[in-house]
Amino acid sequence: MALLEINDLHVGIEDTEILRGVDLDADGGEVHAVMGPNGSGKSTLAKVLAGREEYEVRQGSVQYDGEDLLEMEAEERAQAGVFMAFQYPVELPGVSQQNFLKESVNAVREAQGKDELGAADFIKQVRAKADLVDLDEALTKRSVNEGFSGGEKKRNEIFHLAMLEPRLAILDETDSGLDIDALRIVADGVNQLRDEDRAFIIITHYQRLLNYIEPDYVHAMVGGRIAKSGDKDLAVELEERGYEWLSGGNAAENGKAAEPEEAVA
């Protein structure tokens, strides 16, 4: 049994069906890239896995480590080792990154039956993990994401990922808005975090991130379904040919029916 098993997942908001039967299995040690045009539902998939409540699951199932993921609260998922790097990381003025991370790390550790991380170990970890993504140590002491540049916010997400050591890491368009240097730094960080016990699902619009993070599997998402899966060569093909050839001629219709990805209540 794979770490994550998504079967025939249908998800919608009100009258709109966004996911129309997604199947995807991911196991430890694997990197899955999910690519697709705007409105294909790829970000919705990430958000549903992370536990956003505004989406209605209408059919299908998601098993994580043998448990029904859809029955779990967002915090329970995080405690069980699911992590999503946000496409738009939230600024939390007045919430110190250190206090927040200490609480976050210890909530996860407690749920997993581990001891609290002591102050000295915590600081050591912060330093080491911030280094992974070249994050200025000063930023680890400020309010969460407040006044961070776009690139710093994305790097901060990978820093959180490194601190929380999840088993399933979902990157929701982490590459969007990054210049080439920042993209390299983020990709380096992710590569160092690849681990045989950890699965990655990388949601991306462009193939360029995959030049730096080599995926084991690439899934092309069109109209709320995974239209084709393959290896890294599929990403190159999608970049060259686009997505229309996958949708059997009704891409326009599918695209129209799907909710735009940014339309989050």
Partner: peptide
Amino acid sequence: FYLRSRGI
């Protein structure tokens, strides 16, 4: 939600 998604 951001805080919850980090286990809090």
